[in-house]
Structure formats: C-alpha cells, structure tokens
Amino acid sequence: MKKTLLILCLIIYLFPNNIKGQNEGAAIAAVAGGLVAIGAGIAAVEQMKEQAELTATEWFLTNHPEYSRFSLKTLAFDGKKLKDMSSTSVITFTIREFDIKDNEPELGKKMVLFGFTSFGWINEYGIDFEKVEWFLIDSDEWMNMMIEYSKVASGEENTELIKKTLESGKVVNRGIKAKKGDDIDFYKIGGDMYLVTEYSPEMKFIYNERSLGIYLNETMNLIQIGRGDLINIHEFFFDE
C-alpha cells in the first residue's frame, strides 16, 4: 500500500507543467479515485475476513462445546486481493486449544477448520455462509490426508516411509524434502492433467502441479488448496 501511494504521488509530481490546469485537475481526481478504490478493496477484504472468522468461531462453539479455551484465526485470507476472493474455493482457519498455567496460556491441541465454498459464495452483500461447508481436522487426520495425497502425487506406496518423511521433513513445491534419506518427488505433470484417488466416501483427492484438489462427492464441488496453503497447514501442525 505504501508503495502504491508513493508511485501515485510521483505521478502527480512529475505531471507535465504545460498541461492545462483542468486536465491536471481531472488527472488528480482520477488518481484520488484510484486511491479510494484501493482503500475500499482492502477494507472489503478485511471486513470479509472478520465476518468469516466470526462465523467460523460460532460454528466451532456450536458443534464442539467440549472446547472452552481456544484461539481461532484465518489462514487462507492472508495476502488475498478482493478480485481473487470470489474464485477461492476454501477458507482455512487454524485453531489452537490452550490452558492457563501461572497466568500464562499453555498451548495444546492443534486443529484446522476448512470452509469449503460453492459458486457464488461472495456477492454484493459479502459472504453467503449458506454456501460454505465446514470440515474440521486434527494433526492425525491431516497426516492421513497427506499420506494419501503423496501416494497419488508421487507413486510411492510405502505408507510408513511417507509418514516418516512427512514427520521429519518438509513439504515443498515439488514434493517432500527428507531430513534423512531420499526425498519424495511429486510427478511433473501439466496444469490440465489430474491424478485421482478415493480418500473416503465423502471425498476424492486430486493431484495436479498447482494444488491439492478435494472433490466433495455429495455436492460435486472441486475444492483446490493451493500449494502454498498446503505447506502452511503442514507447518502449522508439525513445525510450530
């Protein structure tokens, strides 16, 4: 945002002196309008982020009353622009249970809450949460998901080897980088090529070079978790 302001100020400053005043005024008005639009876009994303976080918290409180101390924050909204939000097919939230010891929070169990979205989930009024389906996982479920995803993405079938590599290594753009032993490389396929595996009665996993695809059998929606978000989720569970 600071860079944008600086560039726009420079444009105004360097505006040719021989341009008529009325044209200069029109140009400055256009620049000002652009600034307003940028500010409105940032504010809209922030408002949607707060709205989504509040609704996710309400869902968690309603469906999991056993948790009385927890933190919840959005992950997938970070760095998103307003024009990108309507095409986003999943909102991701990290949840952390905690206790209070000696007046300080002691962090405990980690969870991730997915909000799987359907077409039209963002409209002129904000977010339509009737078009969001919630799915909560813990680290064990995420590990199972990543093992199955890694199998279809790499062709490696040794479950224990994949699990050990996931636990000690790092998920990177091209596969799993092992701390010890061999890396597990993902297939290099085109962006319009897909490898599919059945994960559960509710969903299929789909691999291509850009994302982890989750196909929801009931709604027939294809959810795409970008590789960057996938890495962030794995690091949340196993690196923090």
Rank of each mutant, 00 (worst) to 15 (best):
N208E: 07
G226N: 12
I206A: 00
N221V: 01
N232D: 11
N208H: 06
R210V: 02
I214Q: 02
L212G: 03
D229C: 05
E202C: 00
P201E: 11
G213N: 09
R227Y: 10
M203C: 10
E209R: 13
S211C: 14
T219V: 14
P201C: 03
P201A: 05
L216Y: 03
I225L: 15
N232I: 09
G213M: 11
F205H: 05
S211R: 13
I223C: 06
L212A: 00
L212N: 00
T219I: 15
N221F: 01
N208T: 02
G226R: 12
N232G: 08
P201Q: 06
E202Q: 11
I223N: 07
T219Q: 14
I214S: 04
R227W: 09
Q224P: 02
R210H: 09
E218K: 15
S211Q: 14
L216R: 14
T219L: 10
Y207H: 08
N232Q: 12
N208R: 10
N217Y: 05
L222P: 03
Y215I: 01
G228I: 14
L222M: 14
M203D: 04
M203L: 12
Q224N: 14
N217L: 15
S211E: 13
I231T: 05
M203I: 10
I231Q: 10
R227C: 09
R210M: 11
L212M: 13
Q224H: 10
F205I: 07
Y215F: 14
L212S: 00
R210P: 00
Q224D: 11
L222N: 12
Q224W: 07
D229T: 11
G213V: 06
S211L: 06
Q224C: 08
N208M: 06
I223P: 05
G228L: 15
N217I: 15
Y215N: 01
G213I: 07
Y207G: 03
I214G: 01
I223A: 06
I223W: 08
G213F: 09
I231C: 02
I223E: 09
N232M: 10
I223Q: 09
K204N: 15
I206T: 07
L216P: 01
I225R: 05
Y215M: 03
I214R: 00
L222Q: 13
M203W: 05
G228K: 15
M203H: 06
I223D: 08
E202Y: 04
E209L: 11
Q224A: 13
I214K: 04
E209H: 11
N217G: 00
P201I: 03
E202K: 11
Q224T: 12
G213P: 08
L230K: 03
E202S: 08
S211I: 04
G226K: 13
I231V: 10
P201H: 07
I225T: 02
I225Q: 05
G213W: 11
L216H: 08
I231M: 12
Y215H: 09
N217K: 15
G226C: 03
G228W: 10
F205Q: 10
L216T: 01
Y207L: 00
